[in-house]
Design a protein around this nucleic acid. Structure first.
Lengths: 139, 139
DNA sequence: TATTTAGATGAAAATCATTTCTATTTAACG
DNA sequence: CGTTAAATAGAAATGATTTTCATCTAAATA
């Protein structure tokens, strides 16, 4: 759980640019998943330097590839990202109403891979729906 | 397993247009998943009438919503569709090399839903990789 | 069989998230 | 401090997907 993102980036052999650090800061503080444009808006609110959208796209993708962020394929076909401190293999349940994210611990991926006649290289698994809190509010 | 797609479409309250029937025919015959553009190419090869891309997009999406086709979210971010006669709840393992699809029967979705603090409305689950045949060919 | 109409199609244009290009800047190492 | 590979910004391009809208047609009904 490094609040020291500089060290994290060094470990990943990425330069600790102000933009990267600011993006990481936003992502860690966000209670929900964010789209690249939303990350940009939040950066502007903080009166940080303006960060270009291509930079945000590049960094979100890179950090996602490195496992620092999780990527969410929304049904609306946009990409969203989420900072998850949990470094173990797991998946997420995403509330489409309030955008909060729950960890799914027992995902059964290992069992699944074992029944496949081939080699699983990428497993996309997402549960989307309405969390209990939002369910009860709409009732 | 209706080879009689007219009846299937009637059940779904969709008109049995020549375009729809042709698309279904292509999809059923395809040994792999197809992109909308690939469906269009195949339609042209058959010297059927030309079918517009928007029509293909609309129909693939509609038939996918109705459960007649399965949708594949490819890592390259394009959509692909696949005709699967298996009407039970299941998921797919997709070979990225040869594009063939295997059914995954024991997906653990029910167990997963039970551990979530909320209501799962949509579960995206895909295993992507290399099937055994392609694995051995590349060795 | 003719009429009617909701649903479907096609062509062109629009949309819009994402990526590329390229000149400029900068973090980090020595 | 100088060097250099990596990173950034802004503008432009990309390209899959969707919308628009005028036209057509399947199929229910008379």
């Amino acid at each position: 759980m490094p609040s020291d993102f500089s060290q994290l980036l060094k470990n990943l052999q990425l330069k600790a640019t102000p933009q990267r650090l600011a993006i990481l800061d936003i992502m860690r503080a966000a209670p929900t998943y964010l789209s690249p444009e939303e990350v940009q808006s939040q950066l502007q609110l903080r009166a940080d330097n303006k960060v270009g959208l291509p930079t945000i796209y590049r960094n979100l993708e890179e950090l996602s590839n490195q496992g620092v962020l999780s990527k969410i394929l929304h049904p609306n076909r946009q990409l969203y990202y989420y900072y998850c401190a949990n470094r173990e293999h797991h998946h997420h349940f995403v509330c489409l109403a309030c955008r909060t994210v729950q960890d799914i611990h027992d995902c059964g991926c290992a069992e699944l891979a074992s029944q496949i006649d081939g080699q699983v290289e990428l497993q996309i698994m997402q549960a989307l729906g309405t969390c209990r809190r939002c369910c009860s509010q709409n009732a």
